[in-house]
């Protein structure tokens, strides 16, 4: 075993503060994501409205993404602690697939919930799943979650361009659209912060802001779903 430059042979894996913060953040984020999904169930069941479907499915997949992200972060941290080549070559690439799929489909669905009326197309879902398979596959083949991050950032840029196009047509930049942007941007930041050698304060700040965004979204939904 090589412990690198970490003084503690157990590395960051057993850093109780980092581990607890990561765990608490994941639990809270997943609870709010699934709560949003659950709260909107009746509205969707009654109407089968496509926009509600994309919206709630986005949060279902964000919940799954955050669970996978947590497991992935444990894996990365254990790699730092124990320096096992197998982890890097087999388990990390394998984790990229579900992580990339869940998060890409979540991002796609959140974008679809805004644009489905304009670009109504029966192939929209097929396209979303295609992108969600392709992105992690590229990341898997390159053995790098940073590639996934770059590709998902391109999705975010696409979403911003679409929002700007809609803005040009007279639609205001609403609070909800800013919240959507924050959900997507913070996912990318949290994905970037998954590594063990990140600034603790930045990591915690992005997690706290993420939770504030999820709570705000939940409160807005709770207003309409009694």
């Amino acid at each position: 075993m090589a412990f690198g430059h970490f003084g503690n042979p157990l590395g960051h894996f057993f850093d109780p503060v980092l581990f607890t913060a990561e765990l608490l953040f994941t639990v809270a984020a997943v609870i709010f994501c699934f709560a949003i999904y659950y709260k909107t169930r009746e509205s969707y069941e009654l109407t089968k409205y496509e926009g509600i479907k994309y919206f709630r499915d986005a949060f279902l997949f964000f919940g799954l993404s955050y669970v996978t992200r947590f497991l992935f972060s444990l894996l990365l941290l254990s790699r730092v602690a124990f320096d096992i080549i197998l982890l890097q070559n087999i388990f990390v690439p394998l984790f990229i697939l579900p992580l990339g799929y869940f998060s890409t489909i979540a991002i796609s669905y959140l974008i679809f919930s805004l644009i489905w009326k304009r670009y109504k197309n029966k192939y929209l879902i097929v396209f979303g799943h295609g992108v969600a398979v392709l992105l992690p596959l590229v990341s898997f083949l390159t053995r790098s979650h940073a590639i996934l991050l770059v590709l998902q950032s391109l999705l975010l840029v696409t979403a911003v361009i679409l929002a700007l196009l809609m803005h040009k047509e007279g639609k205001k930049v609403t609070q909800v659209r800013i919240l959507y942007f924050l959900v997507l941007a913070l996912w990318l930041i949290n994905l970037w912060m998954i590594g063990p050698r990140r600034l603790f304060t930045v990591k915690i700040s992005s997690q706290v802001i993420s939770l504030i965004v999820f709570v705000t979204l939940y409160q807005k939904i709770a207003k309409w779903v009694k």
């Binding site: 009746e42 109407t47 409205y49 926009g51 509600i52 805004l114 207003k223 309409w224 009694k226």
Partner: peptide
């Protein structure tokens, strides 16, 4: 009963759709 539920929830669902631009 499901039909009555729809009537009861309709305004709220419209509010949700409007607020979240769905």
């Amino acid at each position: 009963d499901k039909g009555f539920k729809y009537l009861e929830k309709y305004k709220l669902i419209l509010g949700l759709i409007d607020e979240f631009e769905l």
